[in-house]
Amino acid sequence: MHIDRLEKYWIVIVAAVLGAFFASLLAAMLVFGLRLPSLPAEFVNPLALSETRFASPGLRDMGDGNYELTLTSLMWRFNTGSSERDADGNDIIRVPRGSRVTFFVTSADVTHGLMVERHNLNIQVIPGHVGRGTIVFNEPGEYKILCHEYCGAGHHRMHATIIVE
């Protein structure tokens, strides 16, 4: 099969560039500790959440600035266990600056999404599965937790607020 000389150079360049991209992805994971919300699987029975850790959602202080936030997504709010609410009835959570928060999230009804504004936390919230991810809040301010998957008529008003103090 005939391949033009210039096209051979082109193929080598393309392979090198894509190879470098992939190598940097592996480095992100192996060297810099990037994790995706993945297996090992943690299944929950979405019809019996009251028998799981999601029976009592909330923020738990694990010491040394580490926190665990257990929350459920449901049409159309995040139940974070917090008693503080904004004017629209959405949850507000407060954490100190520098907190390292691990999220545990599942859905009580349909497929939802979870992302935290201006932080690298992005989880597809699927009934039957526990999504997990950790982020550090270094900058004080207000950040929305947003549902990023269409989940019905009230999807656009589904959010909560994290206040970093």
Partner: peptide
Amino acid sequence: VDPGVSEFAKISHSLLTFVVAV
């Protein structure tokens, strides 16, 4: 970002996605 899919599957499909760009 699906919790029910392993990181290994995500990495390998990411690699083949670069291949399908070729």
